[in-house]
C-alpha cells in the first residue's frame, strides 16, 4: 500500500519536473491543438456571457432603458440599501434559505437513490420502462402540476384527503396550512424532477464495468456492500460536482411553482426572493432594483460555490477544477 502511494508520488514529481523544464512558450506550442479546440467555446463565452456583463452595473444606477446606459443616473448603493431595509427582507431571506435547504436535503439525494435502485434491476425492459415513465413529469408545466395538486389535495373531494379522512377521521388542509407548504413544494419538485435527475447518474453508472462487480462478488461482497463499495464510489465525483454547482443557484427557486402554490393562508412561509423580484422587475419594470437583488443572490452563489469547492478539495475530492 505504502509502496503504491510512494510510486504514484514519484510519477507525479516526474511530471512536475518535466513541465517545469519547458518554458511557457514551449508549453503553449506543445498544446497548440488544445488551444485551437478551445477557441469556438471561448468565443461563445466572450460574446454572449462577458460582453453583456456590463449589465450588472445598472444595479448602481437609476437605469432608464430609453435613456440608455451612459445617460442614466448613478445612485451608488441606494437600491441595495432599499432592498436590505425592506421590512420584509428577513422574512424573504428566511423563507428562501429554508426552502433551499429542504431542497438540498430532500430533493438532491432523490435522483441518486432512484438511480441506485434502477441500477439493481436486472430485467432490461422493466428498467427501461420505469426510466421512461419517471422522466415524463419533467415535461409538464407547473400550471398543470399545480392544477393536479389541487385536484388531489383539496378538502372538498380530493382523493388524497379522502384517504387521509378514511384512516384518521380528519381532513388535512395541505393547501392552506403553512406547515405543509414546504413539504408540498419539495414533494412536487421530487415528483417532477427526480426521473430527469437520474439520467446523469445512470450515464455515470454506465462506466462501471461488469468486471468491478464480478471482482466484488468474488470477494464475497453482498448486494448492499456492492452498492456501497462499487456503485456509489462510481457516482462520487458526479455527486460532488452537481452538489457544488447546485450551491451556485442556492437562492433560486422556481418562480412559477411558488407563485402558483401560494395563497392568502400560507403566504407567510411562501414569499421568496424570486416571487418578489418578479413583481418588482417584470411587472413594474424596475430594472436597477431587480438587478441589485439579482446581484445580491449572485454574490451569495459565488461565495457558496467557491466555498464548497474549497471544502471538497480539502476533503480529498476532485472539486470543480
Amino acid at each position: 500500500m505504502a509502496q503504491m502511494s510512494m510510486k504514484s508520488k514519484k510519477v507525479k514529481n516526474e511530471a512536475v519536473v518535466s513541465t517545469t523544464q519547458l518554458t511557457k512558450m514551449q508549453q503553449l506550442l506543445r498544446d497548440k491543438w488544445l488551444y485551437f479546440l478551445l477557441i469556438p467555446g471561448a468565443l461563445y463565452f466572450i460574446l454572449f456571457k462577458y460582453l453583456p456583463m456590463w449589465g450588472v452595473l445598472i444595479a448602481f444606477q437609476d437605469y432608464s432603458p430609453f435613456r440608455g446606459f451612459w445617460e442614466s443616473e448613478w445612485v451608488g448603493a441606494e437600491h441595495f440599501l432599499n432592498f436590505f431595509q425592506n421590512p420584509d427582507f428577513f422574512r424573504l431571506l428566511r423563507n428562501t434559505l429554508i426552502l433551499a435547504l429542504y431542497d438540498l436535503v430532500f430533493f438532491f439525494p432523490a435522483p441518486i437513490i432512484v438511480a441506485l435502485l434502477l441500477n439493481e434491476l436486472r430485467r432490461q425492459y422493466f428498467k427501461r420502462t420505469i426510466q421512461t415513465l419517471v422522466y415524463v413529469p419533467h415535461f409538464m408545466s407547473w400550471v398543470i402540476i399545480a392544477s393536479i395538486t389541487y385536484i388531489f389535495l383539496t378538502t372538498s373531494g380530493g382523493a388524497i384527503n379522502a384517504a387521509v379522512e378514511f384512516f384518521t377521521g380528519e381532513k388535512i388542509n395541505f393547501l392552506s396550512n403553512p406547515d405543509y407548504f414546504r413539504p408540498m413544494i419539495i414533494a412536487q419538485v421530487i415528483w417532477k424532477e427526480t426521473g430527469w435527475g437520474t439520467v446523469i447518474f445512470l450515464a455515470a453508472l454506465a462506466s462501471v464495468s461488469a468486471e468491478q462487480y464480478e471482482a466484488a462478488i468474488m470477494d464475497g461482497a453482498g448486494r448492499f456492500r456492492r452498492m456501497w463499495h462499487v456503485t456509489l464510489p462510481a457516482l462520487r465525483s458526479t455527486i460532488v460536482i452537481l452538489l457544488i454547482l447546485r450551491l451556485g443557484n442556492f437562492l433560486d427557486q422556481g418562480f412559477q411553482q411558488i407563485f402558483l402554490m401560494t395563497n392568502s393562508l400560507n403566504r407567510s412561509v411562501a414569499d421568496v426572493f424570486d416571487t418578489y423580484v418578479y413583481f418588482v422587475g417584470i411587472t413594474q419594470g424596475m430594472f436597477s432594483y431587480s438587478t441589485a437583488v439579482g446581484l445580491f443572490k449572485a454574490i451569495v452563489g459565488i461565495i457558496l460555490i467557491y466555498g464548497a469547492d474549497y471544502l471538497a478539495k480539502k476533503m480529498g475530492q476532485t472539486g470543480l477544477f
Binding site: 456571457k49 460582453l51 456583463m53
Partner: peptide, 12 residues
Amino acid sequence: VFTMVFNGGMIP
C-alpha cells in the same frame, strides 16, 4: 463557473 452565477441580464 463565474458565468453560471453572474450574467449581464436580458437587456445587454
